[in-house]
Design a protein around this nucleic acid. Structure first.
Lengths: 200, 200
DNA sequence: ATCTATAGAAACGGCCCGTTTCGATTGATG
DNA sequence: CATCAATCGAAACGGGCCGTTTCTATAGAT
């Protein structure tokens, strides 16, 4: 027992097994760097410094930047992707509203932006993101399956594709730094999505 | 006159003015690197080597990576963003189809992906991309203004917003490397966009 | 003829890459 | 209880790119 605080104390091996304290410190340091200084300042060296960890420790468990980024992102716990409010329109409003709030209020937005950017460099990360999104569409498609059962949504609508269209808009707003939408603006977007453009 | 070919010949100053040959060589080298090896291999040093240019020459005219990338992108000439086929549905189909073709067949896709990724690191580049897109929406909104005049599109539809929703889908497909769509799949997407999800 | 801004080459200190080496730690094994 | 094995953080490696500075050569403008 030294006089150092927990943050200053040097972590060491706990035997021939992974040290959860190091794992946490590394992931948290990585998240902090992303949120405070962005992907530009994100490097394994910087994470190691901030976490008081050795570079080999990081490389041992996260073979590259992209995997570390994905791990940071998956720690962010996310809002309900399939709210059930009774109407398709308010379901989608709730979904987008929650997503925008999650991205702008907390750390989720900064982290996810970084993941998407990294995916443009790393093909494996790109596939991982695409697979993750496909899973999201499957989950969120529940909104449309319920709505179909109620008779509120047309038969030919493909739940997963509709979800992709909806979240695509959210992506673009995130990537162009335009998450600040009023409820009225967001309602207008939802109207375009739900009613389409045609005169009915 | 040396025995060297044009590619090998060393360019030099043409006086106290910018040398267009150097400018072209640099932009072309930058594009080639992006297309062949991706943003990961894109560095000022690499561009300078490939273009047989001095780094100071690059830094003099393009203060940073992002500006050079944007310049490369703007050289790519783009498809018609506002086709006029007579119906809103085929207009949008044409637009998306042309965009996907432009992105996957030529160099446009690889370059634009890189620009978007860079924008996640560089706030100035992010604003530039957002402004560029806003301009695109204004141009492409013409599709909806024409359709409104024909009475094919509802009054409450905001042309720019509708365009943003449409191109958002294209962005997501580009960024997740899923540009390979059959005409049938694309038609289905367009139907979701135009008709919306609701039963009519 | 002189001035001036350009061109490319080379080298600078600094940072990060991914890897290797090292001594210390501690659970698992026999 | 002694040994083994895998982990930990620290430090250092050669290599690459950063953005800048210094250099010589070039050729239009004055």
């Amino acid at each position: 027992m030294t006089g150092k605080t927990a943050a200053e104390a040097r972590r060491t091996s706990i035997g021939a097994q992974r040290n959860p304290a190091s794992q946490d410190a590394i992931l948290q340091a990585a998240e902090e760097i992303l949120v405070e200084n962005g992907l530009g300042s994100f490097s394994i060296e910087a994470v190691a410094r901030r976490a008081h960890a050795g570079k080999p420790t990081i490389y041992r468990w996260w073979p590259n930047r992209a995997i570390l980024l994905l791990d940071v992102y998956h720690r962010q716990k996310y809002v309900d992707i399939a709210p059930d409010t009774g109407t398709i329109e308010t379901d989608i409003f709730q979904l987008l509203s929650g997503l925008f709030e999650f991205w702008s209020a907390g750390h989720g937005g900064a982290v996810f932006r970084s993941v998407i950017a990294e995916a443009q460099t790393d093909p494996a990360a790109c596939k991982a993101v695409a697979a993750y999104m496909a899973d999201r569409y499957r989950q969120g498609g529940e909104i449309f399956r319920r709505a179909k059962a109620r008779g509120d949504v047309a038969d030919w609508v493909v739940p997963e594709l509709a979800m992709e269209i909806i979240t695509s808009f959210a992506w673009k707003r995130l990537l162009t730094d335009r998450l600040d939408m009023t409820p009225e603006e967001l309602r207008l977007v939802v109207r375009h999505l739900v009613h389409g453009f045609e005169v009915t």
